[in-house]
């Protein structure tokens, strides 16, 4: 399953709920404000790094760039472009967008 999160982890609980419910080996794609969770030093960094052991974590490059975060991405997070976003959706049989 592909999980997509679009809200900032320091404003809403959707990332936390997602990480709680994503099964081993699932993919988590951070887009829009949620990409900030994948950057060095933010409050959710430890959670993302711990989760990266059992999940594949992706962040959308254009959203990182738009927030000045391109150079601050955590180790273990894969940055994808829009084409990569489409590939992720196509590769997974189902997907859950956390509102």
């Amino acid at each position: 399953m592909l999980h997509i999160v679009n809200k900032s982890a320091t404003e809403r609980s959707s990332l936390e709920s997602c990480l709680r419910m994503a099964t081993q080996g699932s993919a988590v794609l951070l887009i829009e404000d949620a990409v900030c969770a994948a950057t060095n030093g933010n409050a959710a960094a430890a959670k993302i790094q711990a989760a990266a052991a059992g999940l594949k974590i992706y962040a959308l490059g254009p959203d990182l760039a738009a927030r000045g975060m391109t150079g601050r991405v955590l180790d273990g997070v894969n940055v994808v472009d829009y084409g990569g976003f489409v590939d992720l959706v196509a590769e997974h049989s189902n997907c859950q967008s956390w509102l």
Binding site: M1, R20, M21, A22, T23, S26, S93, N94, C95, Q96, S97, W98, L99
Partner: peptide
């Protein structure tokens, strides 16, 4: 429990969020 819920979600064809 959370792991049961996680498995239930993973086995769905379609998940719709509200």
């Amino acid at each position: 429990a959370v792991d049961e819920m996680a498995n239930l979600m993973a086995e769905q064809d379609v998940v719709i969020s509200f």
